[in-house]
Write a protein that binds this DNA or RNA. Structure first.
Lengths: 259, 259
DNA sequence: AACTTCTAACGAACACTGTTCGCTACGAAC
DNA sequence: GTTCGTAGCGAACAGTGTTCGTTAGAAGTT
């Protein structure tokens, strides 16, 4: 077995090491961190849905079975990736304004971060995130809510509603970024301006709304120009939604829920 | 071709018709409606994720390839199923109270209906539903919002936010019903009371929250009894969330969105 | 230094998945 | 009576997540 002529440090994965196993030049050992970090990078490269156990294993220069030493499931893996993505979200401090400004900053930062990692936010739909970073942000959120005068017994519900909003918005943002990349790759970078984007994105929806007869769908018909021109995903839309939710908190504080 | 000896109506699929193709006893012809209806039934039987093209084809006594005559995608199929599920949601009339009562009724009916068909609401996360029933409900929603005095230019955004809420809540309801069925099947029907359910569902989450040190997560620590006892998914929680959103609409009406 | 034990790593395989290709045979048209 | 378009579908493709049983190298023990 002297076939191993590559001992001089072969980092090139194209070298066909078809020798017996274990003749590789001592690659970095696997670990949960390494697996999860590589998975997050892969999410950014190929997209959430395209991260398969095989592809991830290949990126780590190993076989798919090896991943199951550190992770029981694809779901569990993605839960870890989700939490890792949240790690870069910094909680606002006193310099960032009053409780409401800080809460809005925290929420928007989370949306931006999650949305930049494709559909990783999908993880939060199926299971309640319980990773260290998710808990850190939950702590920060509820602390700010209390500072805003939201009743103690409503804080968990309020945090839950905010979380729902964050997840949905992150998915929306991810979809927009994906469309943007696709459009830029196809029609050249010039076509991917914000305005052209929202126009292209809304065009097929507008066609649907436009095809509705005015007698059966009068309200949609009347509001169609608004539904189109405003654009589904403008910045104002996002800010308004968050305002609505927080205003709703405020008008419900110091009072119990109905019933 | 006299092999067709089954003309007497063989509905039993266990009969091994290993004869040449086309000797079957003239089963009901396929159609988009038949495919989508069968798919919805299958969702109720085996769950959203377990509805595969093969299983659906088998339920229709055909091969998977035949489905692609009526549907281009699994996604498109599920979009149709989603809209079919919405078909049973009746829009409230004048007898149901003022605009707010009607809106709440509409929203809650939609959540109940969607939630009773496992995770079919997942469809609405990836794509904006544009089926006839989704449009019917959108029309009803926006009409009620306008009746409530929500500005025209905010109506689409408000409807969007409500839709987000409906989808999330339907998924939550579906998850609860699934857990309930699983628990009833395992520990006997007696164990599946509402109270025991929420206790079991919250127990693992409570363990997570309980394990957090009070110095790093003071707010979670302080609010833990509330987070547990209130239960993540009580009826009051759902009503409160909807109240928050609608109150938010009201405090933002007759005013433009910020900026 | 030699031997045993333990376990991370992994090659290969299993039971699936969505989807496509190209043939078949029926119903309708000519 | 023959042709022909097309719905239907068997078989296969290229993947998927996951598991099993073996193996190689490190750690522990004589």
């Amino acid at each position: 077995m002297f076939v191993n002529g590559y001992s001089g440090g072969v980092t090139d994965s194209t070298a066909r090491t078809r020798d017996t196993p274990r003749t590789r030049p001592a690659k970095a050992p696997l670990s949960l961190d390494a697996v999860v970090t590589a998975a997050l990078e892969l999410v950014d490269e190929v997209g959430y849905g395209a991260v398969t156990m095989r592809r991830l294993a290949q990126a780590l220069d190993t076989g798919p079975a090896s991943l199951y030493v550190y992770v029981t499931d694809r779901d569990e893996l993605m839960a870890h990736v989700h939490d890792l993505a949240l790690a870069t979200v910094e909680t606002p401090g006193p310099a960032d304004g009053d409780w409401r400004a800080r809460l809005e900053l925290l929420v928007n930062r989370t949306i931006t971060t999650l949305g930049s990692h494709d559909d990783i936010a999908l993880v939060a739909i199926t299971r309640v995130p319980t990773g260290p970073n998710a808990l850190r942000l939950l702590e920060a959120t509820m602390t700010l809510l209390r500072a805003g005068g939201v009743d103690d017994d409503l804080c968990p519900w309020a945090a839950d509603l905010l979380d729902q909003y964050v997840t949905s918005s992150a998915l929306e943002l991810a979809a927009r970024l994906r469309d943007q990349r696709a459009l830029a790759a196809a029609d050249g970078p010039a076509a991917a301006t914000e305005k052209a984007m929202s126009a292209a994105a809304g065009s097929d929806l507008d066609a649907v709304y436009g095809s509705l007869p005015a007698d059966t769908h009068p309200t949609i018909h009347a509001l169609r120009p608004i539904m189109t021109t405003a654009g589904r995903d403008s910045r104002a839309h996002a800010a308004w939604r968050l305002d609505v939710i927080i205003d709703g908190f405020l008008s419900n504080r110091r009072s119990r829920a109905r019933e």
